[in-house]
Design a binder for these strands. Structure first.
Lengths: 217, 217
DNA sequence: TAGATTGTTAATCGATTAACAATC
DNA sequence: TAGATTGTTAATCGATTAACAATC
């Protein structure tokens, strides 16, 4: 029996994509089995943590043997929901929106981009890898009779909340926000923020720390 | 006396940019003072956590009053090192590299993009907001006599480690990696990864969970 | 001054690590 | 079988929350 989604902590969930990535690499190297200890060596988590993490979802290993790489990869793919298909729309067809639309790996994993939406007339009408850039005013009409799972916000901060509200009305089930603001969404909508500046500011902090340490050792 | 950088946990550090962002918003609304309780209401951390976080770096508040918004903003900017100037180079001038080069907010915060580097001849010679796109083979020569603080990797996975190695040789002090692989760097180099697919996969997981819950309530 | 709110210590909670019996 | 390694429970560690005296 597969136990899934009990109440697994977000800390564990955020490690799953890394397992997924590493197992993929192992498969490409034709490694067929791996122990938690070996995996620990390459992934940087303790062997204990790896076993704990995996056991949130089921016993995928075998005592005395370890884990079958291919099987574990398949399981984690399933746990992450990568065996499903998702329809997405991207709002904002600037460089970032285009970058995401162009990222063919997402398509491979089942994330299909239906269209990009823009207000800049220069961009409307373009095609990004066969995906049309449409007028933002057409969004509501476009989404009728379609099931849109994920809305991606690639606009500037000023428009992000407006766009979020429009997406919620479609409705979408999740919002992937790249604008550097904290948008407000209904509780039941999955929200994931990618605040690039936060990440850059952490670099800045760490560089400053390093500099200070060199001065006062 | 300002206590900085003792051994503040990464959990705290990763919250700092969010304080920074919210305080900016408050300043724009001409709010001059705020209590940890009020801030808690808008930012979603407990008041207790906010006070704990800030006290890692010093006592910026005043009993009975709260915090001076503008002063706290300035302090957090300083703690994050945003009062410094950083030179950056971006390797990979595709949509993502261009998006980052175009992001004028970074420039405002002191992150100056010296140049982008590309191997695709169609892109070499372009200018992104006055920033030239140069041949990747010119990187080493270009960096001579220049102090490059941050190298940004916007290439595909295949080239990411090579590029990282080149950046380390320049040298750079930090690597900001957008390729969906785990690159290996010397210990003393600051590394920050933005794995977009990880973020998307977490959305996928949460959507799947939500679906499952609706079926087995 | 009285009221409000911090800074800080103590208590709780949760996540990570260690240990080991189960078992392949 | 003996050796290896898991799954799982217990111990530890760290982070968050609660409480309250200090003080503006």
């Amino acid at each position: 029996m597969k136990k899934d989604h009990k109440d697994v902590s977000m800390a564990v969930i955020r490690r799953l994509p890394k397992y997924h990535r590493r197992l993929k690499e192992l498969m490409e190297k034709d490694v067929t089995r791996i122990s938690s200890k070996e995996l620990s060596g390459m992934i940087g988590f303790t062997a204990s943590q790896i076993r704990q993490d995996l056991n949130c979802f089921g016993g995928f290993g075998q005592q005395g043997y370890g884990y079958d790489v291919s099987e574990l990869y398949t399981e984690i793919s399933r746990i992450l929901g990568l065996t499903e298909h998702y329809n997405t729309v991207i709002v904002g067809a600037g460089n970032l929106g285009q970058a995401i639309a162009n990222y063919s790996n997402f398509e491979k994993k089942g994330f299909h981009v239906l269209a990009l939406f823009e207000k800049n007339p220069r961009l409307i009408g373009l095609k990004i890898r066969d995906v049309p850039v449409l007028d933002i005013d057409e969004l509501e009409e476009f989404a009728k009779n379609k099931s849109v799972d994920i809305g991606v916000i690639c606009t500037n901060s000023e428009n992000a909340q407006d766009v979020a509200d429009q997406l919620v009305k479609l409705p979408v089930k999740a919002v992937w926000n790249f604008a550097p603001v904290d948008i407000i969404l209904p509780e039941n909508i999955v929200q994931e923020n990618v605040h690039l500046s936060d990440s850059l500011f952490v670099i800045s902090y760490l560089l400053k720390m390093q500099r200070d340490e060199q001065q006062n050792p």
